[in-house]
Amino acid sequence: MLTHQLFWITSRAFGTIAMALLGTSVAVGLAMAGKLPRKRGAAARLRRFHESAALVTVGLIAAHGGLLLFDSYLRPGVLGITVPFTLGYRPLATGVGVIAGWLTAIFAASFYVRRRIGARLWRRIHRFTPVAYALAVFHALAAGTDAANPWMVATLTGLTFPVVFALSYRLLGSQRDGRPAPAAGAGGLRSAMSVPQ
């Protein structure tokens, strides 16, 4: 019974951990953008965590989808786990999950092309990170067989609260300030992420 469902169970576990890490990473990123960490040096530490957490999340998502390839029950095929809406099982929910996975991979990879594409474009791309999180929550609720379990509901609720709080805090701050975005370049990026003194 267990060996038969091993890949499916492991995939679910990876998906749940990926969800938790994605939520944490997004919340930390939004908190930095909203200049919530006031302590000196906290922003730099959080940025390191944010970056590494995003990368690990991509690995977990890859494992989440990749393990399903070996699930003899679902048999998604490479196409099913990489191309949205091609999987027969709950196509909308799984398709949204695939999109969320790709978006997370793009956002994580954008750390390494930041200099090439410029800070302004990087920030524009990065603003859509909460969308990836929202899509992942939808995927977890609509496709996940654990969606009705209290622990999953509690996990998603607990993850969503700080994400939405940090997002609202950042949006309200940018509305209040009415300041134009910092100039492009590394200096602009640093000023966007800097901790107010």
């Binding site: 609720l141 969606a147 999953m152 969503t160 939405v164 940090a166 805090y169």
Partner: peptide, 25 residues
């Protein structure tokens, strides 16, 4: 005000998760 409004928004959105889970179920 910013913190309170953000908390309120976060609470409402987070509170909708269990309802979404019920709907998904």
């Amino acid at each position: 005000y910013r913190s309170m409004l953000s908390l309120a928004v976060a609470a409402v959105v987070a509170a909708s998760i269990p309802f979404a889970a019920i709907y998904a179920g």
